[in-house]
C-alpha cells in the first residue's frame, strides 16, 4: 500500500509541464490534488515513472467570470468552490458538498475530477449540464473540447497524448434558471449509486430551457434529452411524472453490488422528480 518507485517534478509554469510531458510520454502522469491518483498509486493500479506535480503552476489556479461563463483553472480545489461559489443558481456549489468528504475536497481539484472521468463523479455531470468547454493545453497551443465529447468511457477522456487539462469554462444558465443537485449514496461521502443534476428556466410557468443530467448510471454522465423534451413548454408540475418516466427509460444502467439496473432506473425517476420539484418556481 505504498506508491511504486517514481520520480517527481514540480514545474512552476505550464510550458515546463508540457515539455516534461512531451519528453516522458506515457511514463509521466500529471499530479493535481492526488485524491484519486495517490490511492491508485498506493494500490499499484497506476505505475508512472514520473509524476509531474502541477500544483505550483499559478496559471492553473485561476477562477474568474468570463463572457462565456465561469473559467475554473484545473487545480482550483473543490473546497475553494465550496467556500467561494460562483454566484447565480450555482450548480457547482450545490454539487461540491457531495464530493467525498471535507478532507478530500481540501485537496481534490476541479480539473482532476473532470479528467479522471469517474462515472459516479459529480463535476463531470455538472460540466455536461452547463455545456462546459474543456480547454486542453498541448505542445501546439490550446484546444477546446466540449463536455459532450470529452468523456469517452469510464475513467477515459479525449485528451491527446502530450495534452493537459488547463481549465474548464462552465457555461452560464439563463438568469431565471433554478438549479438542483440530487444524489443517492449508501453513506455520506460514498460514491453515488445514482444522481441527477438539473438547471431549468421557466417563463410564466412554462419551461423555456431544461437541462437534466444523470450520472453513476452508465459509462459516463448522460444528458436526459428525452426528459428535457418532455418538459419543454409545459409547467414543471404538469410534466413531472412524464419527465421522470422518460428519464428512467432513456438511461442504460448496469447491475453491480450497489444495486441492480432496475433499482437505478427507479432511483433516477425519483431523483429526477425531486430535482424538478426543487427547481419549480
Amino acid at each position: 500500500m505504498k506508491p511504486p518507485p517514481l520520480s517527481y517534478s514540480r514545474p512552476h509554469s505550464l510550458d515546463e509541464a508540457l515539455d516534461l510531458l512531451a519528453e516522458h510520454g506515457d511514463e509521466a502522469r500529471p499530479l493535481a490534488g492526488g485524491q484519486s491518483l495517490v490511492p491508485m498509486l498506493n494500490h499499484r493500479l497506476s505505475r508512472p515513472g514520473l509524476l509531474i506535480d502541477i500544483g505550483a503552476i499559478a496559471q492553473l489556479q485561476r477562477m474568474e467570470r468570463t463572457e462565456s461563463g465561469w473559467l475554473i483553472g484545473a487545480t482550483v480545489t473543490q473546497r475553494r468552490l465550496e467556500r467561494d461559489g460562483t454566484g447565480g443558481c450555482d450548480l457547482l456549489r450545490l454539487a461540491v458538498p457531495f464530493i467525498g468528504h471535507r478532507q478530500i475536497r481540501a485537496r481534490g481539484t476541479v480539473g482532476g475530477s473532470i479528467a479522471h472521468a469517474d462515472p459516479a463523479a459529480e463535476l463531470p455531470a455538472v460540466a455536461l449540464t452547463l455545456d462546459a468547454t474543456m480547454v486542453a493545453a498541448g505542445p501546439d497551443g490550446e484546444r477546446e473540447i466540449d463536455a459532450a465529447s470529452f468523456f469517452v468511457g469510464p475513467y477515459m477522456n479525449s485528451l491527446a497524448e502530450g495534452e493537459l487539462l488547463s481549465h474548464v469554462v462552465f457555461g452560464e444558465v439563463p438568469p431565471t434558471a433554478r438549479c438542483s443537485f440530487r444524489e443517492f449514496a449508501r453513506r455520506k461521502g460514498d460514491f453515488a449509486v445514482a444522481g441527477v443534476a438539473a438547471a431549468v428556466a421557466t417563463d410564466d410557468g412554462s419551461v423555456t430551457d431544461a437541462r437534466l443530467t444523470a450520472f453513476a448510471v452508465g459509462s459516463n454522465p448522460v444528458r436526459l434529452s428525452a426528459a428535457e423534451g418532455v418538459l419543454a413548454g409545459r409547467s414543471i408540475d404538469s410534466a413531472l411524472a412524464d419527465a421522470a418516466e422518460a428519464a428512467a427509460a432513456e438511461i442504460e444502467p448496469w447491475d453491480d453490488i450497489h444495486g441492480s439496473a432496475q433499482y437505478r432506473r427507479q432511483l433516477i425517476a425519483t431523483l429526477t422528480k425531486r430535482a424538478l420539484q426543487d427547481v419549480a418556481p
Binding site: 517527481y8 514540480r10 495517490v38 473546497r79 471535507r102 478532507q103 481540501a106 485537496r107
Partner: peptide
C-alpha cells in the same frame, strides 16, 4: 495542512514543500 483538514496517506511528502 495550511488550515485545511487533509488525509496524509494520500499525499506525497514532496507535495508539502
Amino acid at each position: 495542512l495550511d488550515g485545511e483538514p487533509v488525509r496524509s496517506c494520500i499525499m506525497l511528502a514532496a507535495q508539502v514543500d
